[in-house]
């Protein structure tokens, strides 16, 4: 475990906590895409299929449980908690899950390291995670009215991806045989999707203004 990996995991954890804070204490999910959150549930459920069969460390297992539990509870809140559900921008959040999932399923069946059930599911989760933020970014663009917590949530998620890239670079130079093209390319694509958002986030931060995306 290097410092970049730890920083990435902690940023990821912080992003989930910010979102739970918004939903749990303010009882609002305004500006949050349920589609993206449901895609994350699928991402974690397909990636952590090995949670009971392969053990790396207590840290890893605990984090897997946290990410599974938090993503399920966020979706539960947005769907079934009356007060939270009322604040959901249902009409704006229209991205189709299958539009993202189907290409990822096909790609995972075609491009993978090993053709086994667990390996294809794991690869699918990488491809899906890369694009899972898209419904959220589309929703932001549509609502244009971005509150601080939602902005921070996406900023932290993007930060998590950035730290993972630094982690891969570090590991590539310090560990022999550390080469994972599928992970790297899908991770890079995922991080690039945040570039536009980051640009406007920093602009609003620099000018000390409320974050607004251009139409």
């Amino acid at each position: 475990m290097n410092i970049f990996r730890l920083a990435g995991d902690m940023t990821h954890l912080a992003s989930v906590l910010v979102l739970l804070l918004k939903i749990h204490t303010i009882k609002s999910c305004a500006g949050v895409s349920l589609k993206t959150q449901e895609l994350y549930v699928i991402v974690f459920a397909t990636r952590y299929l090995d949670i009971f069969t392969s053990f790396v460390s207590i840290y890893n297992s605990l984090m897997k449980l946290i990410f599974l539990g938090s993503s399920f509870s966020i979706v539960w809140y947005m769907r079934y908690h009356k007060a939270v559900h009322r604040t959901y921008d249902r009409e704006q959040d229209t991205f189709r899950h299958w539009f993202l999932m189907l290409p990822c399923i096909l790609l995972a069946l075609l491009i993978h390291e090993k053709f086994t059930f667990f390996e294809v599911m794991w690869t699918f989760s990488l491809y899906l995670e890369a694009v899972a933020i898209l419904p959220q970014l589309v929703l932001l663009q549509r609502t244009r009215n971005i509150d601080n917590l939602t902005g921070q949530y996406i900023f932290l998620l993007g930060g998590y991806r950035g730290f993972y890239i630094l982690n891969w670079i570090y590991r590539y130079f310090t560990e022999p045989h550390y080469v994972h093209w599928i992970t790297w390319i899908s991770g890079l694509v995922q991080t690039l999707l945040y570039a536009d958002f980051f640009y406007y986030y920093f602009l609003s931060w620099k000018n000390n203004k409320k974050l607004q995306l251009p139409a």
């Binding site: 090995d50 392969s54 790396v56 890893n60 984090m63 982690n167 022999p176 045989h177």
Partner: peptide, 10 residues
């Protein structure tokens, strides 16, 4: 086998 192939990332 490649040891670093193990999935130790989240």
């Amino acid at each position: 086998p490649n040891k670093s192939y193990e999935k130790d990332e989240l």
